[in-house]
Design a protein around this nucleic acid. Sequence first.
DNA 1: CGGTATCCTAGGGGATACTG
DNA 2: CAGTATCCCCTAGGATACCG
Lengths: 124, 124
Amino acid sequence: MRDILTSTPIESCPVRQILTDVGDKWSILILIALSGGPRRFSALRRDIPDISQKMLTQTLRKLERDGLVSREVTPSTPPRVDYDLTALGASLMHQITPLAGWAVRHLDEITAARRRFDWSSTSG
Amino acid sequence: MRDILTSTPIESCPVRQILTDVGDKWSILILIALSGGPRRFSALRRDIPDISQKMLTQTLRKLERDGLVSREVTPSTPPRVDYDLTALGASLMHQITPLAGWAVRHLDEITAARRRFDWSSTSG
DNA sequence: CGGTATCCTAGGGGATACTG
DNA sequence: CAGTATCCCCTAGGATACCG
């Protein structure tokens, strides 16, 4: 796998692309929220209480641009916008789920490692 | 899965933790390089040509702190430092590999979606 | 309701120089 | 060789205000 690094320009490493893409502050949270089914803008705001309106819009646009999320506008008054995972987005979440499982199983281990590291830096 | 969002404080969502952790500019690139076997500092610099010395050190420290990477110093002159994946790091990479496969298989699709999005934004 | 537009700041990350 | 230390820039992202 290491040859990915030399065989392709770094910028185009596919793993890196999706990890940095989905690794920003809000993307996965939105994707997780949408994995429960379609959701309106305001519903997403409630799902993720501490996201700002700006970042919700901005991140949704990015995910839409990537083809991971669909956006359907109903031009009523007041307007109504429904977001949903696309097939591509759903298939990505299918990959994320085992990773989520790993994270849950090993979070304690990571936390413990951090404590050890910080402790031995401080005192030893 | 959506209940992760409400059942726990957002900050502690485990998936988010590892994704933002490994989603920074250099982490996966280093982890990928190390998944080929142990590697010296200077070898990693060659593997990832455009990383700065500062960021290589800094990112390695973070990964070490997380318990994903081990660091072994041989105090010779000149000094020698070997980095390697820990068992935890290797098990993480085990989860990343299928994700990498997905990324490779669907990168074209994402790129196409972006072109469509950018095109329809520009022209109508 | 579902957005823009504007302003502003914390910190990620590069370049360069120095050290044991 | 494998790092610190310093400086400096740029952008992700928050707060606030306005709009159809």
